Simulated scan of single mutants.
Amino acid sequence: MKSTTRGTLAAVLTCVAAAAGAAPAAAVDAIPVPVPLKGAEKALHMELPEVGGEVPLPKPGSPEGPRFVEGRLLPERVLPQLPLGAGLPGAGLRAPLPHLLGDDFDHLSLDAPSSDLRTLGPGLDLDAPLTAPHPGRAGLPQPKLPEVGLITPVLQTVPHAALGLGSGL
């Protein structure tokens, strides 16, 4: 095998391996964001809370196209709603307690994981000022009042959090 062929083959295999390695990273829903406080703990000679969070990645969806309805000249939902799936950011906090409530309670923790968020952008629905052609009137449409409607945006989520006291850190 010639050296140029081997080089080309090695480049192709490298690209395939890089693409295969990047595929699991694309499937991540949220990126963890740790807050490093260990250096401050050593500098201040005290125990600090552990803080972290999650930043969700937005994922665009495919919009529902216009739907044709009998009796209308223009399709329903002329400007479709655009879906976007993401999540609310999550947070985690674990703070030490100085045994205020007894020896069994050493820390206070708050866990608010990222929760799914479903959104739909606003849409537009309108109809022409004419009806569909009428066979009894020689195929001529009849005038009517135009119709314009705004489809309201949608925002759906179910956030949740847990607050607790416990022993040990």
Rank of each mutant, 00 (worst) to 15 (best):
T5H: 12
T5Q: 06
G7R: 14
G7K: 15
A11C: 14
V12H: 06
L13R: 04
V16T: 04
A17S: 13
A19M: 05
A19D: 01
A20F: 14
A23P: 06
A25S: 07
V28Y: 03
V28T: 04
I31L: 15
V33G: 02
V33Q: 02
V33S: 01
V33Y: 03
P34Y: 06
V35Y: 04
L37F: 13
K38N: 08
G39M: 09
G39R: 12
A40V: 00
A40D: 00
E41I: 07
E41D: 01
L44F: 12
L44S: 06
M46N: 06
E47T: 14
L48V: 11
L48I: 11
L48H: 11
L48W: 13
P49N: 03
P49T: 04
P49V: 08
G52H: 05
G52N: 05
G53I: 14
G53N: 10
P56D: 06
L57K: 05
P60D: 07
P60L: 12
G61Y: 12
G61S: 06
G61I: 06
S62R: 13
S62K: 13
S62C: 04
G65V: 06
G65A: 08
P66R: 04
R67Q: 12
F68I: 08
F68P: 02
V69A: 13
V69K: 11
E70K: 12
E70I: 10
E70G: 07
R72E: 04
R72Y: 11
L74H: 03
P75G: 09
P75S: 06
P75T: 02
P75A: 08
R77C: 05
V78D: 01
Q81R: 11
L84M: 14
L84I: 09
G87K: 10
G87S: 11
G87A: 10
G90A: 03
G90T: 03
A91Q: 09
A91R: 10
A91V: 15
G92M: 13
R94S: 09
R94Y: 01
A95R: 05
P96T: 07
P98E: 02
H99V: 10
L101E: 03
L101F: 15
F105L: 04
F105P: 00
H107K: 00
L108N: 11
L108R: 07
S109P: 00
L110A: 09
L110V: 13
L110K: 02
L110Q: 01
D111S: 08
A112M: 15
P113H: 05
S114E: 05
L117E: 10
L117H: 13
L117A: 11
R118N: 08
R118Y: 14
R118A: 11
G121N: 01
P122N: 00
L124D: 00
D127I: 02
T131N: 02
P133R: 05
P133G: 07
H134R: 14
R137E: 08
A138W: 14
G139V: 12
L140Q: 07
P141E: 02
P141H: 04
Q142H: 13
Q142F: 14
K144C: 02
L145Q: 00
E147S: 06
V148E: 02
V148A: 12
T152E: 09
P153V: 02
V154W: 02
V154E: 07
L155D: 00
Q156T: 09
V158I: 12
V158T: 12
V158W: 09
H160T: 11
A161P: 03
L163C: 03
L163H: 01
G164Q: 13
G166W: 11
G166H: 07
S167M: 07
G168N: 09
G168Q: 10
L169V: 02
